[in-house]
């Protein structure tokens, strides 16, 4: 009697989890549409005292240098040992309307993908800088609400020009 009960419980659990895991955004525009109100996600806005063009130029320089990386993270507790290898891919698009920074992440090792993964990896976040006037901009983030604080802080530092450092991507969720 125990085996059918375990099998039934397992099937029910998998079905429930599949119901929780829906499609992930497949491009930046889908990130913008799907983030508001999504679980563990946020939309965050900052006022920046720099022009959108200056922000775009900084994104173009810093994003490839800091975010085009492969990261190996090791976590060890008394009961587990986990190695995760992740490849990050930044994309910067600057138009007359806005400067965009898209960040994708692909796990080469240690994490199982359960939904369709876009080319280059799952979208982690999108940052858009819009002009307010000649010297000010509005920076809007669409992304996770937890675990990626270092990336948000780094991008804000680039946008303001006050800190051009790179985020330690081994400190992300």
């Amino acid at each position: 009697m125990a085996i059918p009960t375990v099998r039934t419980f397992t099937i029910a659990t998998v079905l429930l989890l599949c119901g929780c895991v829906t499609q992930h955004p497949q491009n930046a525009e889908e990130v913008r549409k799907m983030t508001p109100g999504a679980f563990l996600s946020k939309v965050e806005t900052h006022e920046i005292n720099r022009s959108m063009q200056e922000i775009g130029a900084t994104f173009r320089k810093r994003a490839p240098e800091c975010l085009n990386v492969r990261v190996r993270t090791t976590s060890q507790t008394p009961g587990s040992y986990q190695v995760i290898v992740s490849v990050y891919k930044p994309t910067v698009v600057v138009t007359a309307e806005r400067a965009e920074l898209h960040l994708q992440r692909h796990h080469e090792r240690g994490v199982l993908a359960v939904t369709k993964e876009p080319e280059g990896g799952y979208y982690l976040m999108v940052a858009d800088a819009y002009p307010v006037d000649a010297k000010r901009s509005r920076l809007q983030f669409f992304g996770p609400s937890m675990g990626f604080d270092v990336i948000y802080r780094a991008i804000i530092g680039w946008a303001t020009g006050k800190d051009l450092g790179c985020p330690d991507l081994t400190k992300t969720g």
């Binding site: 990386v69 990261v71 993270t73 976590s75 060890q76 330690d168 081994t170 400190k171």
Partner: peptide
Amino acid sequence: NFYSSSFLGASTGSI
């Protein structure tokens, strides 16, 4: 190389 470790070395990172 920036090598960081936390909480008795349970989690380490190297970048």
